[in-house]
């Protein structure tokens, strides 16, 4: 992604402030417009009809795509190729497991909800089809991608509650069946699972030709582990308690978390999956620009 100048007003909006505004559409529009308005050129807008190149006809190609004018001049069959389809399928898979409720100032779920809304709005503005799936240990809600489902998506996001324990593999495998058409699948989660399990879960989606983007949302406290007082730590998902002396365990915990993140990132790179770590203190435009850059790349890819 290039270094596009960004409208100063949108960039520094604190996600915590946005989260207090309950109207997701308004929030999404404010954020996305701020981002888009700052761009000098909008290569992603309506670019789907642009001619790309000619290539030789191979059996199996749709004869409707044969450029007859070129055939008339050269007496050879050429197929006319265009830029990628503009009306891509875009789905957000949002983790609403209990662990997503964690957050000192702003819960991860609220952050993820706002992020999903922003992405949905952005995609909707690009005339792409927007879909949403909420999952924890099972599929909580599924809205298939459609150009008309933007409002439904927003409603579903608004209703999302982190109440049950989560399990990433089984719901994602089920969801993969719904993504028959190639598109962009954004998974927003805290990925409290082994990296192997995470990539096993997104494998079926990826294998169906979808581009997968992983937004790993974490609270700063989860990364820094800035606790000081000894206390019983309660697992939000299982309810288990463990007496913890942060001073004694902090270093080892941070090392384990960093190893986990590094493993996720390296596996993502290896498998061609986009992976981005977000913490709830980061402004949302980071994620949006990341998405746009990925989208940009996808449009240039056959």
């Amino acid at each position: 992604m290039s270094t596009h100048p960004i409208a100063p007003g949108a960039r520094w909006v604190d996600p915590a402030v946005l989260a207090r505004v309950r109207n997701l559409e308004f929030v999404a529009r404010s954020v996305v417009d701020g981002v888009i308005n700052g761009l000098h050129r909008s290569p992603f807008f309506g670019a789907s009809v642009d001619f790309a190149e000619h290539r030789g006809y191979v059996p199996g190609d749709d004869i409707r795509r044969v450029d007859w004018k070129v055939f008339a001049r050269t007496d050879r069959y050429f197929v006319k190729e265009f830029e990628a389809d503009s009306n891509a399928n875009f789905s957000v898979l949002l983790d609403v497991s209990r662990s997503m409720a964690f957050g000192e100032r702003l819960s991860k779920l609220d952050y993820a909800r706002t992020l999903a809304a922003c992405l949905a709005y952005l995609v909707h503005m690009q005339r792409d089809r927007v879909g949403l799936a909420l999952f924890d240990e099972a599929i909580v809600e599924f809205i298939p991608p459609s150009a008309k489902h933007f409002d439904l998506v927003l409603h579903a996001l608004d209703r999302a509650r982190a109440e049950r324990p989560g399990h990433i593999e089984s719901p994602l495998k089920k969801l993969a069946e719904h993504f028959g058409r190639r598109g962009i699948v954004v998974v927003i989660s805290d990925f409290y699972a082994e990296p192997e399990e995470v990539f096993r879960a997104i494998g079926p989606i990826r294998f169906r030709g979808n581009d997968v983007i992983l937004f790993h949302v974490l609270d700063p406290a989860e990364v820094d582990f800035s606790f000081t007082d000894p206390a019983s730590f309660e697992d939000l998902e299982t309810g288990d308690q463990l007496p913890i002396v942060p001073e004694a365990l902090g270093d080892r915990y941070r090392a384990l978390v960093q190893a986990h993140l590094a493993e996720l990132a390296s596996r993502a790179t290896a498998q061609g999956v986009d992976y981005m770590l977000l913490n709830t203190a980061m402004p949302l435009d980071h994620a949006l620009f990341r998405y746009l850059s990925i989208r940009d790349r996808l449009t240039r890819t056959r």
Partner: peptide, 29 residues
């Protein structure tokens, strides 16, 4: 103090990986 203070944490996945005996030892600050 420890009994009264319960910290909700998203997951004990990483904490569980740390050997328990070191967790069990309480330190006086």
């Amino acid at each position: 103090r420890e009994r009264r203070q319960i910290v909700e944490f998203p997951s004990l996945m990483f904490l569980r990986k740390i050997p328990y005996e070191s967790v069990k030892r309480r330190r006086i600050r």
